[in-house]
Design a protein around this nucleic acid. Structure first.
Lengths: 204, 204
DNA sequence: ACCGAAATTAACCAAATGGTTAAACATTTA
DNA sequence: TAAATGTTTAACCATTTGGTTAATTTCGGT
């Protein structure tokens, strides 16, 4: 429903995000979006032409969230363990703020892998990874951490942060926890996951 | 296309699995399934009545794979570290064999959380988790591992095993690897992830 | 108050889609 | 071999869906 202070365009974008992240490109209906926005379906087309165009906008926004700030933290000139703590904190906080986002992004990339290309080239992934790789190699040489590939480490960090949100309904059901308990558990993971990772690579 | 030795029913199920795991319930078309099976669309309805019925069968099968054997390994009477190695090995092997399965299952559960209930009550999740919990607590008391919740440990294990497959297109693109390199990396993770986890909880 | 542009809507349309029907074809059975 | 039963298909049908059109309403500028 359209709120005060909100332009029609914004209202539609909000409704579209809700519909697309919940049901995906093929599952969401233009009528759903119009209803959710409290307007006529033709008006959605008036502002955003086609379903694909609208979806493209939403996907771009959500994809941006997926990587937002991450590059900054990963490039920061701070010790590795401290960096890991920051990445985990940031990642999990992002998942808490936008819980539907990761599954949506993963899903649509999996249905149409081509769209990731144009999104990724907007970000300078190579230099971010390169920088991280250098730091990891140095710590290995210094004998501070075990011999692990920077890419593996990065995958592990992201797995531990993102997966519990992506698989939320399964986690909730298997663990037999309610919404509140689940959210509390995710918050606890900010500290626990960082510790877990640092423990896993630290040489004592 | 229908192969020799395959009953029409099996052919349809194979085609349906392909369509549903690739495109989801709403994205897959009955005509796609019929085409893939090389038969008339009405024949699909002749054997499986409705799209929902057919989908239900496929989902049940895939959900089964998701947990197959896992319970057995988790209940086994072997040391914790060895058990972790087995779980990781089994999990990642399952991901390699059915790469489309985890995203499909996660996705459809997320779209319709109710379906997980009836599936889960077929499995005795509670006693499996209870058993694992007991073993973890004992190891903590013995001072062999750090103080960690069994549920957190289990989530971490599953995250590290499942996520890289779920996010395959993203991983491939960010890491700039081809299909062959990606698959090799997943295989390497059978050993590396187990080590990573054991390192993370072991008290040295 | 009036005009013109922008915003919004109701009514449509064509294509896609899940599902049905009746007839044709194949196989088993009496 | 002929009836009966099971399998498969072409042609339909009703509904849904993304999208369009033309008319109506709203609103800023004069």
């Amino acid at each position: 429903m359209k709120k005060k202070n909100e332009t029609t365009e914004e209202t539609i974008l909000l409704a579209a995000r809700k519909a697309f992240t919940r049901k995906g490109l093929s599952g969401a209906r233009m009528q759903d979006i119009a209803d959710e926005a409290g307007i006529n379906k033709a008006l959605v087309h008036y502002y955003f032409e086609s379903k694909e165009k609208l979806f493209g906008l939403i996907f771009g926004q959500e994809f941006g969230k997926f990587f937002s700030n991450l590059a900054g933290v990963m490039m920061a000139d701070i010790p590795l363990f401290e960096k890991i703590e920051h990445i985990v904190e940031l990642d999990i906080e992002r998942m808490s703020q936008f819980p539907d986002m990761p599954l949506f992004v993963i899903n649509e990339i999996s249905r149409n892998p081509a769209i990731i290309m144009e999104q990724l080239k907007r970000l300078d992934v190579k230099s971010v990874i390169g920088n991280f790789q250098k730091q990891v190699k140095e710590e290995i040489k210094k004998g501070n951490i075990i011999n692990i590939g920077a890419d593996q480490l990065l995958i592990n960090i992201q797995s531990l942060c993102i997966f519990p949100t992506v698989a939320k309904p399964m986690v909730k059901n298997v663990m037999q926890v309610n919404e509140k308990q689940y959210l509390a558990m995710i918050q606890r993971r900010k500290k626990e996951v960082a510790m877990f990772i640092i423990n896993a690579i630290k040489i004592k």
